[in-house]
């Protein structure tokens, strides 16, 4: 095991890395949740054989493609289709089925590094035969993600988890019906996501991509520190119609200052909130 020990980084190491990324690539990671980010950078250094942060910084500064690799690895993309089946069932029954569809329903899934939440939502939309009445917009920080999300090729190992979740979402049917089985992966049938808009977007610096009826923002704020979380919620609030809904992760809280004046709880357990419609003053 000699030479294979994981390097443990200190706060100053992380600060040096953030400063370098900011100076060289204008990417600011300093407001991400430190503990989990530190752990992912340590894993990255272990896997790519770096023993000090200075070595890593030097490599990243001199090699832009290596920076992209680092960014891809440290931004969390691990999620599952139909994660929290109870949430998806609640959304389907209480919001998507009950809407009157006088106008197109607009849904935003911000800050995605992978497509599982989109695929899940689009499958539900197809089940309800609402694909011409609902428009979903997925935004992602890295342009590299767009092609991957659009291709929708999922590893077999991940599909096992997805299928197990799907069985808890509904007793009948099989998730694989929506996929084509290839040699080492499952490809989502393209018509499932053909109506979705998938664009590159920085939540914190770009203009919001529209005003939406529903924003699905689950388990994203886990990776922000408390101040960035509040910034994110304030920005999302400006992109949400009065009377619209926001869904966050089942272990997250909607607690930016004054939120209880602006939102009512639709489901405490599934963390779905409705923006209050204010009467004109």
């Amino acid at each position: 095991m000699t030479g294979l020990k994981k390097t443990i980084l200190g706060i100053s190491d992380m600060k040096n890395l953030f400063q370098s990324l900011n100076n060289n690539y204008s990417i600011d990671l300093s407001n991400y949740a430190l503990s989990s980010l530190k752990s992912r950078v340590e894993d990255f250094m272990f896997n790519y054989h770096f023993s000090s942060i200075d070595e890593l910084i030097h490599k990243v500064e001199s090699d832009a493609s290596f920076f992209q690799l680092l960014l891809n690895k440290v931004l969390v993309e691990t999620t599952e289709m139909f994660r929290d089946p109870e949430f998806w069932n609640f959304l389907k029954i209480n919001i998507l089925t009950r809407n009157n569809y006088q106008n197109e329903l607009k849904i935003w899934i911000p800050e995605c590094n992978s497509g599982e939440e989109l695929y899940t939502l689009q499958i539900i939309i197809h089940q309800l035969n609402l694909q011409h009445k609902i428009k979903v917009c997925l935004t992602t920080l890295s342009p590299l993600n767009i092609e991957r999300i659009t291709k929708a090729n999922l590893e077999i190992k991940k599909m096992e988890i997805n299928c197990a979740n799907f069985e808890r979402y509904q007793e009948e049917g099989n998730l694989e019906e929506y996929f084509t089985n290839k040699a080492n992966s499952f490809k989502l049938n393209p018509e499932i996501i053909e109506n979705a808009e998938i664009i590159s977007h920085n939540l914190f610096s770009d203009k919001i991509p529209g005003i939406f009826d529903l924003i699905i923002f689950r388990n994203k704020m886990l990776y922000y520190n408390p101040s960035l979380k509040i910034d994110a919620l304030k920005i999302l609030n400006t992109g949400l119609k009065p009377g619209g809904y926001i869904a966050i992760g089942i272990k997250e809280s909607l607690d930016f200052p004054g939120w209880d004046q602006e939102f009512t709880v639709i489901s405490e357990s599934e963390r779905i909130f409705k923006k209050i419609i204010r009467k004109e003053e």
């Binding site: 503990s35 989990s36 691990t78 886990l222």
Partner: peptide, 13 residues
């Protein structure tokens, strides 16, 4: 996880 401000950090990694 345990953050330096003495609060819990969760992750889906």
């Amino acid at each position: 996880y345990f953050e330096l401000g003495n609060y819990i950090g969760l992750s889906t990694e």
